[in-house]
Structure formats: C-alpha cells, structure tokens
Simulated assay, not measured.
Amino acid sequence: MLAEYAETAYRGKQAAKFRNEIATGERDSMYCRYQSKQALFPWGNVFGHCYDSYQSAAFKYNLSGKAEHYRNVLGCTPNILSLSTIGRKVSDILLLIWVCIHLTILLCLFFIPVFLYLLGNEKQGTLALCYIFLMWAFSKFFNLTIWKLIRKKVKASRVNFERTKGLVWMDNNSGSHSLKFPFEEFNAHYKVQNNPQSGFPYRGFTLLHFKKDVFYAWTGANLISSAFLHWELLQNFMDVTQPLADIPQFEYYREFDKTTADFDKANGRPKYFWYRVDKSFLKKMSQAKNEQLKEFNDDEQLDNLLMGKPIKKLNPPEIFKFPWKYAENIKPESEIKFGKTAWQKFTSFLMIDL
C-alpha cells in the first residue's frame, strides 16, 4: 500500500539555476512575463507549520464525506493533492457565475414569495413561487444530469501536486493533465490582485515554472502571512524528507505516506486523529496560530519580500507538531462517523454539487 519514493522526488532543496535562469521577456504569456519579474518567496519554512484558515472547512469536509467525494470526482490517488488555480480558464468564471445565480435563485425562492404574501398579494406570491421554483429546478436538473457528463473537463482547471515523484501536473488545455514538471523547477512569485470595486488587495503568489508558461495562482487575505502559510503547505506536501503537516487537510494522506506513517508510529500519534478529535480543538489551534502571528510584522515582512531582504523565521509552538498531546476529547477509533447530518443533506439538496 505504501508507494516507493522515486529518486526524482523533491527533497526540500532547489538547484540555484531555477532561481537564476528565470525566463522573463521571451515568454508568450503576458501574465507570465509580468509575474516572472516579481519578487520571489524564499524556499523553506517561516512559520514552521501549515495551519491556515482553510483547515476548519477541511475538518468539516472530511467528516461529511465531501472531501472523499471530490477526490473521487477528480480521480485523485493518496499521493496527489489537487488544488484549483485562480483565473486560468473561462470555464472557472462561468462556473462561479452559475454558483452565484443558483444561490440568488435559492434566496429569492425563500424570500420573494413570503414578502408578497405578507403584503397580501397571494396571487403574485404564488406566481412568483412557481416561476422561481422552475428556475431552481432547471438548475438542479442540469446539475444532476448534464453537469455530470462535462464535469471531468473542469478538472483541467486544477493543478495536481504529486508527492511521491515530486511532480506538478499542469493543464494542457485538453483536460488530460499530460504536462508534468518537477516541483523544484517552479518559483513562487509575489502576486497581488485588487478588487475592481473596492480596490482591496488580495496577496498571494504565482507558482510559475522557471521557463514554461505554466503556473498555479493563489491569492488570500490582505496579509502576506497567509501567502507564506500556503507556500509552506505546498513545500511540505512535496518534500518527502519530512512528514506531512499535522492538519485536517492532510489527514487522508498520512497513512499512505511512508515518511509520515513512520513518524506517527514512532511518536504514538492516534490514528485518524483529525477524524476523532472534537471540533472545539480547532479553536485552540487557531489561537496558537494567532499568538504566533503577533511575532510576524506583516507590513515589515512584505517590504522585506519586495526588497529581497531576509524574512524573519518563527519558532512554531509544539502544538503544531504534536497536536494530539494538547487535545482533551479524542473519540475511540470505533466511534468515527462519516456522512452528512440531516441539515447538511438538506442544504446539499438545495445547492448544486460541483
């Protein structure tokens, strides 16, 4: 069950040539030309952990079965982390528009008829209910039938990170993910994306190949710290010399990864810890992260990044390495329950399944 690690797997180091020989002006893509000239994130750890704001959602997705559902849809194996990249294809934008329209219809279905009934206009309320229900039903029917046939093509908008071989699978625009490059050939270039309405900046990075016009783009909050955490998450997943970070997002992968399985066995980590611990423990992890963030001057470190100065490295609390030692309520393995609650099943039925 445990796969052997290939000699080509990324091992926590990058050859200097991939930083020094970055192709800039000769690229075909204007976006890649621009990003190739932006500041570079340093390789290695700054925070020393990968616990970010997404872990709360990952915890819920694991227990509800949503994470397993997505892995099945995407055809992911236990050594592949599949992530959606931002702004790569028109299909991504259309998908987002569909989600927003469906949600708007759903809200109208609940509120507009009720509003009309309260005004005493029962005929208009009933008519509105029928029309809005038909729009919701059409969207839901499309989701349950035609969407399932074309959903596989949407996988082309994702980037796969293969831990055991240290490879990054990029989209070749046909949906086959036939383009594969060593992870160490990519650099994380600083990226900022502004909201066109408010001008509010979202900071992140573009993981761009040092020569090819292929990339993984990510932006988060208006904090450079969130970008560092995500960059460390990718490095951690791809570095086979160290165990996977102990976070909900990686629980599924732990037992299949040799380095991690050996680490867990040597340190007595409870199997399936993040499936068994009480969700209140997430608050304790978040508090520890927030305390550590106080040592990280975000504005100062952003300036250091843009000017190529060293970034301050932090010492992570032990809770990030051995979280089970700080958890009070860990259920027996026999009590693990997967699946949606009645409320989750109801809301899933109302929404569309991507």
Score class of each variant (00 low, 15 high):
residue 10 Y to P: 02
residue 255 E to Q: 14
residue 257 D to K: 09
residue 184 E to P: 01
residue 46 V to A: 06
residue 71 R to W: 03
residue 265 K to F: 06
residue 146 I to N: 04
residue 336 I to H: 01
residue 86 I to R: 11
residue 298 D to T: 00
residue 301 Q to R: 07
residue 79 N to F: 11
residue 55 Q to W: 07
residue 242 Q to W: 00
residue 78 P to V: 05
residue 208 L to W: 05
residue 278 D to Q: 04
residue 309 K to R: 15
residue 148 K to V: 07
residue 145 T to Y: 02
residue 93 I to T: 12
residue 336 I to K: 02
residue 265 K to T: 12
residue 260 T to L: 08
residue 178 S to V: 01
residue 204 G to E: 04
residue 153 K to M: 12
residue 271 K to L: 10
residue 302 L to I: 01
residue 162 E to A: 07
residue 95 L to V: 01
residue 229 L to V: 09
residue 136 W to G: 04
residue 211 K to G: 05
residue 205 F to Y: 15
residue 209 H to G: 10
residue 255 E to C: 10
residue 165 K to R: 08
residue 15 A to N: 12
residue 177 H to S: 09
residue 341 T to N: 10
residue 101 I to N: 00
residue 186 F to Q: 03
residue 209 H to S: 06
residue 58 A to H: 13
residue 78 P to N: 13
residue 14 Q to P: 00
residue 240 V to S: 00
residue 225 S to R: 10
residue 71 R to E: 14
residue 238 M to G: 02
residue 141 F to S: 11
residue 179 L to V: 14
residue 62 N to W: 03
residue 292 Q to W: 02
residue 154 V to M: 14
residue 304 N to M: 03
residue 127 L to H: 07
residue 213 D to G: 06
residue 327 A to Y: 05
residue 295 E to F: 04
residue 183 F to L: 06
residue 224 I to C: 10
residue 99 V to W: 08
residue 287 Q to N: 15
residue 180 K to A: 13
residue 218 W to Q: 09
residue 213 D to T: 08
residue 191 K to V: 14
residue 269 R to S: 13
residue 28 D to L: 08
residue 194 N to F: 15
residue 319 I to V: 11
residue 176 S to M: 10
residue 240 V to E: 01
residue 244 L to E: 08
residue 16 A to N: 11
residue 15 A to V: 04
residue 58 A to C: 14
residue 140 K to E: 01
residue 311 I to E: 02
residue 167 L to E: 08
residue 116 L to D: 04
residue 119 L to Q: 13
residue 1 M to N: 04
residue 350 L to H: 02
residue 347 T to K: 11
residue 38 Q to H: 10
residue 29 S to T: 08
residue 158 R to M: 13
residue 10 Y to F: 15
residue 13 K to E: 15
residue 298 D to A: 06
residue 190 Y to R: 03
residue 222 N to S: 14
residue 147 W to D: 09
residue 165 K to T: 07
residue 163 R to F: 09
residue 323 P to M: 01
residue 51 Y to R: 09
residue 53 S to L: 08
residue 226 S to F: 03
residue 217 A to H: 07
residue 21 E to K: 12
residue 300 E to W: 00
residue 197 Q to W: 08
residue 31 Y to R: 09
residue 166 G to M: 01
residue 135 M to G: 05
residue 210 F to N: 06
residue 127 L to W: 11
residue 343 W to M: 15
residue 197 Q to E: 15
residue 248 P to D: 07
residue 285 M to R: 06
residue 141 F to P: 00
residue 45 N to H: 04
residue 189 H to A: 11
residue 198 S to V: 09
residue 253 Y to L: 06
residue 318 E to W: 00
residue 269 R to Y: 13
residue 119 L to T: 13
residue 344 Q to W: 03
residue 88 R to Q: 11
residue 35 Q to E: 09
